[in-house]
Simulated assay, not measured.
Amino acid sequence: MSSSTWLELKEIDLSFGTSQVLKQLSFVVREGEICSLIGPNGAGKSSVINIINGIYQPQAGQMIWAGQVLQHYKARHAAYLGIARTFQNLALFKQMSVLDNILTGRVLKGRYSFLGALLSLPQSRKNDDEQRYKVEEILRLLNLQEYREQIVSTLSYGLQKRVELARALAAEPKLLLLDEPMAGMNHQEKQSIAQFIQKINQGLGITILMIEHDLGVVMDISDHIVVLDYGKKIADGTAQQIQQHPEVLNAYLGRQTLEAS
């Protein structure tokens, strides 16, 4: 296994009752890349994200993180490994401010003491200042400064998606899982989010695994693309390789779609 490989899924099988969702799925995500998972609806893409995040436990296969086979891996372990995610549907605290929503992503990074907070001890104040400083960096990175005190529910959908991205970044992940980050957005909002994803990847060095249906965006920003169909991997390579792959053309993308993108 290459030293540059962050994550490897090896011969993963996942079933719910008699329905097999993933079939001997294997692929790697290398450090520093943007890897996209694509495929038709029902191909198993979100199930892959849920396995990596520890929500689903496969019946067979291995998940290898930074060279270590994960045993008895659960969702509660993901953040400690350095894995953060966003969701298809917004999962924000709608009646809290943008700032407070992002601060919730700092939970594991803080050194909290109830007594210190109660007595406002210097160490507690220093910790609070550190958390605020990190959040300020993220607000600047994602151009959210002007919305910092606004209640999340009052923001547009596109801005709420950006806040969710900011909260995931607050955990300082090594691997960021993005489950349809551009769903429901107009063209301008998609272009904006795509630019922020590249900024996160290139500026912060965070590895990204993304599910996205907008093939134009996928082809533009991905270093590596994995194509699923009915729970099986049918292609794995660069955007150029994927666009020329005959099985992908026949099973999913269609020659006209690819040429248009």
Rank of each mutant, 00 (worst) to 15 (best):
86 T>M: 02
74 K>E: 15
66 A>H: 13
180 E>I: 00
75 A>Y: 07
195 Q>K: 15
119 L>W: 12
19 S>P: 00
188 Q>I: 12
171 A>N: 03
108 L>E: 13
125 R>W: 10
247 E>I: 08
119 L>T: 06
142 L>C: 09
13 D>S: 06
183 A>N: 07
90 L>R: 05
82 G>M: 05
166 A>F: 04
88 Q>F: 07
111 R>H: 15
140 R>Q: 14
227 V>D: 05
251 A>F: 06
215 L>V: 10
139 L>Y: 06
248 V>W: 04
194 A>G: 04
147 Y>N: 00
227 V>G: 00
44 G>Y: 04
157 Y>N: 07
121 L>Q: 10
250 N>T: 12
65 W>P: 03
172 E>K: 06
60 A>H: 12
34 I>H: 02
14 L>R: 04
74 K>M: 12
42 G>P: 00
150 Q>L: 12
116 G>V: 01
107 V>D: 11
186 N>E: 11
139 L>G: 01
88 Q>L: 06
120 S>T: 07
69 V>F: 08
232 K>M: 13
77 H>Q: 14
94 K>G: 11
196 F>K: 03
68 Q>D: 14
63 M>D: 04
125 R>C: 05
141 L>P: 00
252 Y>S: 04
162 R>G: 00
255 R>L: 15
29 V>P: 01
186 N>T: 05
160 Q>V: 05
203 G>S: 14
63 M>Y: 07
108 L>K: 14
260 A>R: 15
41 N>C: 09
245 H>P: 03
228 L>M: 09
224 H>N: 09
57 Q>A: 14
174 K>Q: 13
218 V>Y: 02
137 E>W: 06
73 Y>W: 13
178 L>Y: 08
72 H>M: 05
107 V>K: 14
60 A>M: 12
220 D>K: 10
115 L>M: 13
152 V>Q: 01
242 I>D: 00
121 L>E: 08
194 A>T: 00
94 K>T: 12
11 E>D: 15
143 N>Y: 10
236 D>S: 02
188 Q>T: 14
74 K>Q: 15
12 I>F: 00
147 Y>K: 00
139 L>K: 01
249 L>T: 07
95 Q>T: 11
